[in-house]
Amino acid sequence: MGCCSSKKVGRTPGYEDPTILASETPFTESEVEALHELYKKLSCSIIDDGLIHKEEFQLALFRNSKRKNLFADRIFDLFDVKRNGVVDYGEFVRSLGVFHPNANVEDKINFAFRLYDLRQTGYIEREELKEMVLALLHESDLILSDDVVETIVDKTFRDADLKGDGKIDQEEWKELVKKHPTLIKNMTLPYLKDITLAFPSFVLSSEVEDI
């Protein structure tokens, strides 16, 4: 991975006051500052402009900047709140906040719904669910017959589509998660509680500057 030439905190595009970010997210101020270290590392790994591009996100997730993945694409698109093709620092911290162990469960449920609502219609449709299952199978090199995939999707729809209209709305999604809480397990990153241990260099360099 490359290295940032800009060391000064204020030079990061979209840099926001840690106090404000801490007040709007489950992170403490020092955790927000530690996240800045991670952000700097990710945002200059390929293009040294202080913004996270999709290729940089893919590189961080897969150690391969060219690896296409439906779910990584969806996550990136949700992080890119301004929809300008890059994730800035504020977007990064606020979006990661949803994955904090202390984040509001409702926020996690809503984020997961938006993630799986591939075409942003306000519903998770049968075709979208099938597309995601196929993407997962492809990624895992698992081969299942179309009949088996249909069975998996049918079974899930019987469980989730309480109104029987062939699509899952937000209310039905909430009910499904209530029944199967493990469905949003991937919306919590335990790492985020120990972020200052993982990226202590900001804290250390701030102390040095203070002296």
């Binding site: 088996v148 069975t151 998996i152 199967h180 469905l183 990153l189 790492y191 972020i195 993982a198």
Partner: peptide, 26 residues
Amino acid sequence: ASPVTMNAFELISTSQGLNLGTLFEK
């Protein structure tokens, strides 16, 4: 569990593309 008996969303949640934990690996 066999994929056939799993809820499709449970299956999907195992995707590497959803494992943001790798962002924190040095």
